[in-house]
């Protein structure tokens, strides 16, 4: 089974203080720590597990600048056999549609039985690239995949619906699946493992290799154009309890007591 996994390199923002940059269309990136997109981490792991069981190859592919290589190295260290990075200044400003177009231009020429994506990217959260890519490739797909079982020529997938409900679908291969977190437990890679992967080649391709013209990539090829970023207005703000931990604890305890909660 030959598998392509689409991975993105995203900033970890849960604990970071985010500032809008001077263009007003991006966040200030300096000082942020980047890593493989959480959902893609699960997609890569799933691909490697399938390969370990059935044989075949895993190719990790990303669109991004040179610093995205660290995510590709992580994929190689985890068990990917090949890595491709698509990069070009013209790709800047690509939305989900243009991103999928660029991925499609390369993936359509790779031999693969399975394409795995993350359900969504932690930065833009479109949850769209995989599904658009499936349409462009003309292969069936499923998103929110929580369990994947391969049979001959088909896959049985559990999709998670709302409220804990799941549905089981049978889908013909080749297919594209966008996976949810929790589908597996991504393995840990040692620094040693990542160092070893430094020797493996990352294939770097540009606009010319995609066979696309400028009109199909970046802002020109996108459905959507970002106008501005801003910190969301606060509709309801919590009343902040301040003081030393002991003082805060006293306030909370009193609050709970006054409400009859303890």
């Amino acid at each position: 089974m030959d598998i392509v996994v689409c991975v993105k390199h995203v900033p970890e923002t849960a604990e970071a203080e985010l500032k809008i940059d001077s263009t007003g269309k991006n966040i200030e990136k300096t000082g942020l720590v980047y890593d493989i997109n959480e959902w893609d981490d699960y997609a890569l792991e799933e691909a490697v597990r399938i390969k370990e069981k059935q044989g075949g190859t895993v190719t990790a592919i990303t669109i991004g600048t040179e610093d995205f290589d660290s995510t590709l190295r992580k994929c190689l260290a985890r068990g990917a056999d090949a890595a491709i990075r698509l990069t070009d200044p013209k790709f800047q400003g690509s939305d989900a549609y243009a991103t999928a177009k660029i991925l499609h231009s390369i993936i359509k020429n790779l031999h693969c039985d399975l394409i795995l994506c993350g359900l969504q990217a932690g930065d833009d959260g479109s949850a769209a690239v995989g599904t658009i890519l499936a349409q462009l490739l003309g292969v069936p797909h499923a998103t929110m995949v929580k369990k994947l079982e391969l049979c001959t020529g088909t896959a049985k997938v559990n999709r998670e619906l709302e409220g804990g409900l799941e549905e089981i679908l049978e889908i013909k291969l080749p297919a594209l699946f966008a996976v949810s977190t929790g589908i597996n437990e991504p393995r840990y890679v040692s620094i040693m493992g990542i160092r070893k992967a430094m020797q493996k080649e990352i294939k770097v391709l540009g606009l010319a290799d995609t066979g696309l013209t400028e009109a199909y990539v970046g802002e020109a090829g996108s459905w959507l154009k970002t106008e501005k970023l801003y910190v969301p207005p606060v509709e309801k703000q919590a009343e902040f309890l301040k003081g030393t931990p002991d003082e805060v604890a006293t306030k909370i305890a009193e609050l709970l007591k006054s409400r009859g909660l303890i």
Partner: peptide
Amino acid sequence: TSYGIDLAPRLATELNIPLATD
């Protein structure tokens, strides 16, 4: 939703209609 996420991007691509998600 779990339905719309599975459906809309593909439908929009088929029709080439600009789509904004979420």
